[in-house]
Nucleic acid binder design. Structure first.
Length: 249
DNA sequence: AGCATTGTTTCACA
DNA sequence: TTGTGAAACAATGC
């Protein structure tokens, strides 16, 4: 599920858990909490409160009071943030904060590719895909011999675009995922950035990347919503990619 | 049974 | 050293 729009939703959930005293932490999933040992995150957080929730791309973090450490969270391939919901049945709550008021915040993740960590390092994460400036976008996306689709997925170039949002954006921009990133013109890059912002904004408003017009058509191995052509399919950047061979050039 | 999967990290190689 | 590509990771769903 989680791409930038879902991560933004998760950030808003975390905001509901601010300013409440943390009385217990379940950090016993050593894979989700790696490289921390069990109890390490708990020792750092018990007695503190979360004071602000932030996001860059798909990476989330919360500040804590009294100069405490930041808590980094990532949804991985299937995670979501649940606040004040009943505990999940089958041990899908991989990381949990319990609050003094009886509420709780959980990283609920059927797979275990989500992540909880103290003092997260974002030094290799690029600017947020929804906020990146025109000049920054040209410089970071419009370079290299890599396929354009793969460049959009590179979180160190710009952060937040996942497989579905990439396909949706490229379709809107009428650009082929196979184009070489470094060979796009400045005009094409500006246009791509506009379409990326629009696709992201729409997805946040409508409730997720699944609501995208192209994503919906794509799932059913279908046809281009614009011209009805059979969609092309291939692995690009190690991810399954769909595009319209007629209108995406 | 086998394969694919909305993500990230790590490693090999040019 | 940098950029690129591929595999590993965990668990579920089709």
């Amino acid at each position: 599920m989680p791409e930038l729009p879902e991560a933004e939703r998760a950030r808003q959930q975390i905001e509901r858990a601010l300013d409440r005293e943390i009385v217990a932490v379940d950090d016993t999933d050593t894979y989700v909490c790696r490289p921390h040992a069990p109890g390490e995150i708990a020792a750092a957080l018990v007695g503190r409160r979360l004071t602000a929730a932030h996001r860059r791309g798909k990476f989330l973090w919360a500040e804590t009071d009294d100069g405490g450490p930041d808590l980094g969270l990532h949804l991985g391939m299937a995670g979501r943030i649940s606040v004040d919901e009943e505990p999940a049945q089958n041990r899908w709550d991989r990381f949990v904060l319990d609050f003094a008021d009886g509420g709780r915040l959980a990283l609920r993740d059927k797979r275990r590719l989500g992540r909880a960590v103290i003092e997260p390092d974002f030094s290799h994460v690029g600017p947020d895909a929804a906020e990146v400036s025109r000049d920054m976008f040209r410089a970071r996306v419009g370079r290299g011999s890599i396929a354009l689709k793969a460049k959009l997925l590179d979180q160190s170039a710009i952060a937040g675009v996942g497989n579905l949002l990439a396909d949706e954006t490229l379709w809107r921009a009428r650009l082929s995922p196979r184009r070489v990133a470094g060979e796009l013109s400045a005009d094409e890059l500006d246009h791509l950035r506009r379409q990326l912002r629009a696709a992201t904004r729409d997805a946040i408003r409508e409730g997720g990347v699944h609501t995208g017009r192209f994503v919906q058509a794509r799932g059913r191995g279908g046809t281009c919503p614009r011209d009805g052509a059979e969609l092309e399919r291939a692995a690009i950047g190690e991810r399954t990619t769909y595009w319209c061979p007629i209108c995406q050039l």
